[in-house]
Design a protein around this nucleic acid. Structure first.
Length: 436
RNA sequence: GCGGUAUUGGUGAAGUGGUUAACACGCUGGUUUGUGGCACCAGUAUGCAAGAGUUCGAUCCUCUUAUACCGCCCCA
């Protein structure tokens, strides 16, 4: 029979079991930490009506979205978790308690040209806090604390959450009177780390900015020093623009709250060049990098928006959130050797029977499982050598050997596969030993 | 959407216009049917991405297609 070649679409990540175990460990840290801070779980469909997903979308989104027809329905795969959240909040407004804090871990889809570390299907792990009409800046401060705790727990080295406020940039643009092509300017600012100051200057001039305007922009994004020094310099710019001053107040407040929340100084910084979100965010914006691996890029980003669901409802629903791109993070961490596969099995113990008598060994398995021990029984008809070979391959920490002798005495020989030590234990002793 | 480079077993790969496509890892079996890892032995690509062409002869040269990777674009 003609066989079909088993292959996976480009840009879709598929892992081996031992890799998936590692991936899930990271995901568990994220989920547990989100829950610890009071975020509620949410799951929404992968497929939505195109009209819902594309309510606000512009050109690029439409190009990247997976869109198809089924019958008369025009459907799309979700490309992020924020738009479905907006729909959800608008739809369930009357049943939700505000501020609504939700987390969502799920796959999203983007029909981009896939490259190494860039996926078409990937996990996003979002937290967002949605207010009804208003939302305290305390939330802007709590979000990076959650993220900081997660990356600390993951033990992936030093990281920095870069913080900025879009009002600073918008206010600056207003004061410089360069408001018509802010989007392009933001894009250039975002590139400064990559292409350097000179090139940015050139590009800005190409955007028809005057020498003076370029100078104004560069003076702003070149501000450096400690967090407090940066704030000082921002104040010294003496920009008398309402938006700018509001942004400055906001970022000062947020940072003050963050310090009160115990956020370590080394884990955050003001970075006036981050301009992510382009036209999406309206206040605080965040981006996170690993200090030792800047080339990995941002592993987590987000920000504040004034009105989450304006395309679905007249209600004003300000929100703030952040998203970890887990698939990319996992892939990059593994590529860089920061995380390594350790376990090939989740089992605590594998039972190996030396006899053909199934009754006793299966009963031991049942008793162990009742005590929440992860246990499996090796296929009975295999040879002893094959059974041990299997145990060795899956790297199970313990093997429970059960033969005639053990069966008669109601015991089990527990072998530590690392040290090779073996001892004859009662079932109770065996269970106690595995549990600690 | 636009460029560049590549494609040899399950994996990492060497190699040449002309007999059996190196080596290593992995896997399977055996030496060893109440004890794995180590060692030794044996097995493991009718084929060099697919198709067409040039040639007495192509994995090697040419073209087309597919796929992958690297840039650009973009990244809510």
């Amino acid at each position: 029979m003609e066989k079909v070649e088993p292959r996976t679409l480009s840009g879709f990540l598929e892992l081996l079991p031992e890799e998936q175990i590692l991936f899930n460990q990271l995901q568990d840290i994220i989920r547990e930490t989100y829950e610890k801070y009071g975020f509620l779980p949410l799951d929404t469909p992968v497929i939505e009506y195109s009209s819902v997903l594309l309510a606000k979308a512009g050109g690029e989104t439409e190009k990247q979205i997976y869109r198809f027809n089924k019958g008369d329905n025009d459907l799309s795969l979700r490309f992020d978790l924020t738009v479905p959240l907006a729909k959800y909040v608008a739809k369930n407004y009357n049943d939700l308690i505000f501020p609504f804090k939700r987390y969502q871990i799920g796959k999203v889809y983007r029909g981009e040209r896939s490259q190494k570390g860039r996926f078409r299907e990937f996990y996003q792990c979002d937290i967002d806090i949605i207010g009804d009409n208003e939302l305290s800046l305390l939330n802007d401060a709590q979000i990076p604390c959650v993220i900081s705790e997660i990356f600390t727990k993951m033990n992936i080295g030093k990281f920095t959450i870069r913080i900025n406020n879009r009002k600073l940039l918008n206010g600056l643009f207003q004061s410089l009177q360069v408001e018509n092509n802010t989007k392009e300017i933001l894009r250039e600012i975002d590139k400064i780390d990559k292409i350097g100051e000179e090139k940015v200057k050139e590009n800005l001039l190409d955007l028809n900015l005057s020498q003076e305007q370029v100078k104004g922009v560069l003076n702003f994004i070149k501000i450096s020093g400690s967090t407090n020094e940066k704030i000082e310099q921002l104040e010294m710019l003496n920009i008398k623009n309402e938006t700018f001053l509001l942004g400055l107040e906001e970022i000062k407040t947020v940072i003050s709250y963050m310090r009160d929340l115990g956020m370590k100084e080394e884990n955050f910084t003001i970075d006036l060049t981050i301009a992510r979100g382009l036209d999406y965010y309206t206040g605080t914006v965040y981006e996170t990098i690993l200090n030792d691996y800047p080339s990995i890029g941002s592993i987590c980003s987000g920000g504040r928006f004034d009105s989450l669901a304006e395309f679905y409802t007249d209600k004003k629903l300000p929100g703030v959130g952040m998203s970890i791109g887990l698939t990319r993070l996992f892939y990059q961490l593994r590529e860089a050797g920061i995380i390594k596969v350790e376990k090939k099995t989740l089992l605590d113990v594998l039972l190996i029977s030396m006899t053909n008598n199934s009754n006793y060994v299966l009963n031991v398995a049942k008793q162990a499982r009742d005590q929440d021990i992860k246990v499996d029984v090796c296929d009975l008809e295999k040879t002893t050598k094959q059974k041990f070979k299997y145990a060795n391959r899956i790297q199970v920490p313990y093997v429970g050997i059960i033969g005639e002798e053990e069966e008669q005495e109601n015991k089990i020989s527990l072998k530590n596969m690392q040290t090779g030590e073996q001892e004859l234990l009662t079932i109770e002793e065996f269970i106690r030993k595995i549990k600690d």
